[in-house]
Design a binder for these strands. Structure first.
Lengths: 371, 371
DNA sequence: CTTCAAAATGAAAACGTTTACAATTAAGCA
DNA sequence: TGCTTAATTGTAAACGTTTTCATTTTGAAG
């Protein structure tokens, strides 16, 4: 009824050894697959293990084997649809390779991020996957990174020689902007924060270059908050709608930001896409919700997770391989938040104009072919 | 350019000891706060630690201290808005108490769930938080649970004496149904799966009892898939709309399921809330999206996480305290997916009728007062 | 029944800490 | 200066494994 005072004595390899009348080395051998041990003793030992309820203590094992089979996953916040989706895929593929995940949030804070790295490092993880908080991360983190294999996800710290896997952000916004222009838009406003991360810098550049290449003047509305939450997007969009009306389309730097725009637009009686077209980036799961139906640039998240984990365990197993930089290709996911500015023009022409150029976007940062 | 072959020699306490001309016991003392050591030697040792870049190896420390400061978090899928939000809060509060989180998914699979428990157990976590996959979890898991403090979240395995923290699911659907009835609905369809978890059984019961208490006939449409994904909800809702039209409101067992309904309704040209009112449960972050605006039953997720972690570390620190069962109170979050069936009736009357009864819901499973 | 190689097992060291206990040093006091 | 006691430091064991190396057992061949 009240507290159940268990003895909580864990059974160790020695207990099994005593019970089975063998040395504990033999027990260890019975438990590891490819060791030389007679089949009948193995069976006997296994039987005793089972009877006593022995389970191997992986922290002891880690110490002597010098591997923990643990991967640190450091990210700003698991409560962000893009990141939880990434985390999901990362955990899945890691588990399939017999690695477990230690989750550490940095809360979009550089100091916390540093603490998180230190934490997982102290716990002797075999490798680290970082979704960085900001570009400034790198100088901070530099000193830790040579201790253990590391791969950055969703952010190519351009100055850093570390491994990373990202989507081709430049290409993403480039084709996005082209799509809007193909729909007839000439006044497209880029809505986001340009400077905090390489990711966002590249996204802004892709948009800008696409505009310039088609003789359209780039227009920016810079957020002073991170494009990470709907709330931030909402606040910024309210400000935007208050200050400006000189655009027919909004190209948001992230889907969460786009959702914020959606919310603010609702409040201001602005119809999407009838009054203004809206384009996102990331294709988070909620972009496809009915009523939302956000046209957006898809990041191949499962593939990114797969590549990231595989680069990492590759490095782990080969003791610091050469750095790998993988840049995957984003794709335009058409839904209903963008519409042609001139409804009279036939769709086929739009398609045609679009197809004209997107196939040869020259992305300055796509160092490698996609998966 | 190519592989950078680091020596990767980690500096241990012995290296520091040698360098500082002390025994390694002294180094250990210098690093742990309340030990008797002369201040100048501590400084000297700390200086050497710093110079050599020493960081303590927590797996070695874990072994001798017999604690890992690791909490296992076992849940069906981090890629589920409710769970990622819970995970977020759990990780935050755990981190503030100097615990780290080991994340393990069960993928809604009983076998995987058992494997996950075993995994974290082998890694010697100090405690486990489980968001169970199904009620059947318990018989499976029973044998592991006495090994280490455990707390269940979002599911009170009623047969089990383990600690748990949930919302009062019965009360939740009860007040939800009452709200719909207060809006004038008499044909309310409960849409979900009734049997897999205690949570869902209780939700169905709360709805049913509310109906009966107000002389309304309960109507069920049982899903044969789990109410965990939008896609499942969408498929089931399509089937529902094909088969039946005898209701004016849908009370969904989860928000994700409600989103599925929204999607299917869109497809069938059914307007929400004009044609049919829709009520959810959980208040996931996306329920408040513009255009979605789902009226729903809020689970106090941050509070649940807080209680869960605190129960757990309480147990850890007091070596198996008595079991704690905490049932928090859900609240109705009104948005715009429900509307009165008779628009002529004034809002005040609706409010009045509603207030009449919800204050004395007798929930058979609320063993304890809310936080 | 030896002999000998191969196979199986055991003994002990190692992984990097913490901590009880013993030994040393410092400090106070006559 | 010597004595006593408190504060500091060192020694060694322990945590639960894996693995090297040495030892024993096995079984086949002579």
């Amino acid at each position: 009824m009240s507290a159940s005072n268990q003895t909580k004595k864990t059974v160790t390899i020695k207990d099994v050894a005593r019970e089975a009348n063998v040395s504990y080395a033999t027990v260890s051998r019975a438990l590891s697959p490819g060791s030389s041990i007679r089949e009948d003793t193995r069976q006997r030992v296994l039987e005793v293990c089972d009877r006593l309820g022995y389970t191997t203590n992986y922290v002891a094992r880690s110490m002597v084997m010098r591997e923990t089979r643990l991967l640190g996953l450091v990210l700003p916040s698991i409560d962000n649809p893009f990141m939880s989706e990434m985390a999901y895929h990362i955990e899945c593929i890691a588990r399939s390779l017999d690695y477990s995940i230690m989750l550490c949030s940095s809360s979009y804070d550089l100091k916390e991020e540093e603490k998180a790295i230190n934490l997982v490092l102290g716990r002797q993880v075999d490798g680290i996957i970082i979704i960085p908080t900001a570009r400034d991360s790198y100088p901070n983190l530099k000193k830790y990174l040579n201790k253990v294999p590391t791969v950055f996800v969703n952010e190519n710290l351009m100055e850093a020689p570390e491994s990373y896997v990202t989507v081709d952000n430049y290409r993403g916004t480039f084709i996005g902007a082209e799509y809007l222009m193909a729909l007839g838009h000439k006044r497209i406003l880029y809505f986001g924060r340009r400077s905090t991360t390489a990711t966002h810098t590249l996204r802004a550049m892709g948009y800008q270059d696409a505009c310039l290449q088609h003789g359209v003047e780039p227009m920016f509305f810079d957020s002073y908050t991170d494009a990470t939450t709907i709330t931030n997007g909402y606040e910024m969009a309210r400000q935007l709608f208050r200050e400006r009306q000189d655009f027919t389309a909004i190209q948001a730097s992230t889907d969460t930001f786009a959702l914020g725009v959606l919310q603010a637009a609702d409040e201001y009686g602005i119809r999407i896409p009838e009054d203004i077209s809206l384009l996102g980036f990331d294709n988070i799961r909620y972009a496809q919700l009915p009523k939302i139906n956000l046209t957006t640039i898809e990041q191949p998240k499962a593939a990114m997770a797969d590549v990231a984990v595989n680069i990492l365990v590759g490095k782990i197993q080969n003791d610091f391989e050469a750095y790998s930089h993988r840049v995957l290709t984003p794709t335009l996911t058409k839904r209903s938040s963008c519409m042609p500015i001139d409804l009279s023009r036939p769709e086929s022409e739009i398609e045609w104009r679009l197809r004209l150029s997107t196939n040869d976007v020259h992305s300055p940062f796509a160092h490698e072919l996609p998966l």
